[in-house]
């Protein structure tokens, strides 16, 4: 495929997947542009996590097209290949390497050769060390760099995970419920952090916290029963009858 089908960074068209007859994703179509930040909301079981699973190669769709950068068919790649293509993912439950230090966590996530030979024999260059320092600065964990990740607070683990995504230097970040279990102050900081990241990189945020979504102030996509219910600004979608019906409630 020499000619790009779309200029969008991420392009999903007519994607469906079902588990034992249950349609988790039903004819889902979605596009995300370069550098765009998109918030995704929807009730439980709307298919948000499954959609992320499909984009990151964890689940194969039954039908539909999933394209990255216009010509890369994501359904043909597995998780690690997709990660190397430039898609980073943060899980709902913070997942960091608890028995490594904060610094090691970032060092392992750095974008570079992940092959066995390289990991066995190459050292981390000073440039790469600088990059780690930068990220530590961004995620506000510089003072805890040599502590074990297990000792961090819940919110700090969320940030460390976001930091690991940054170290990966992806073109697209998928962030699943980044502020779950955070204090209000941490939530505001996180929104700030994500806005800093957006622009340079595209970000998809799945979140339930409406205040946080409002803080982000970006285009919102509402998912319900596996397909897109509404799309637009938060005010626009909150006014939508169907969204109120299925998600927000009267």
């Amino acid at each position: 495929m020499t000619e790009k089908l779309t200029k969008s960074l991420l392009y999903l068209d007519g994607v469906s997947v079902s588990f034992d007859g249950f349609k988790a994703i039903n004819e889902l179509s979605l596009t995300v542009e370069h550098g765009e930040m998109r918030a995704i909301i929807g009730p439980n079981g709307a298919g948000k996590t499954t959609m992320m699973d499909i984009i990151t190669g964890k689940t194969r769709p039954d039908s539909g097209t999933v394209l990255f950068e216009g010509d890369i068919d994501l359904t043909r790649h597995d998780e690690s290949a997709i990660a190397l293509l430039g898609i980073g993912r943060k899980f709902q439950k913070p997942t960091v390497f608890e028995s490594h230090t904060v610094e090691d966590n970032l060092e392992l996530a750095l974008k570079r050769d992940h092959g066995i030979f390289a990991t066995l024999f190459t050292d981390t260059s000073s440039e790469q060390k600088e990059r780690i320092d930068e990220i530590l600065e961004t995620i506000r964990l510089g003072h805890r760099r040599s502590e074990l990740a297990a000792d961090l607070s819940h919110g700090q683990k969320q940030w460390l995970e976001i930091g690991m995504l940054l170290a990966q230097d992806p073109k697209l970040l998928l962030v699943d419920e980044p502020v779950a279990g955070m204090t209000d102050a941490e939530t505001i900081e996180t929104a700030k952090l994500l806005r800093e990241i957006a622009g340079e990189k595209a970000v998809i945020v799945v979140e339930h916290d409406m205040t946080f979504i409002r803080d982000l102030d970006v285009k919102v996509t509402v998912l319900a029963e596996g397909s897109v219910l509404a799309e637009g600004s938060l005010d626009h979608v909150s006014a939508d009858e169907r969204v109120i019906e299925s998600y927000l409630g009267r």
């Binding site: 588990f19 034992d20 988790a24 996590t49 499954t50 699973d53 964890k58 689940t59 899980f91 709902q92 439950k93 997942t95």
Partner: peptide, 8 residues
């Protein structure tokens, strides 16, 4: 096997 949404 029961299929299901993959768990993290």
């Amino acid at each position: 096997a029961l299929k299901g949404r993959s768990v993290e």
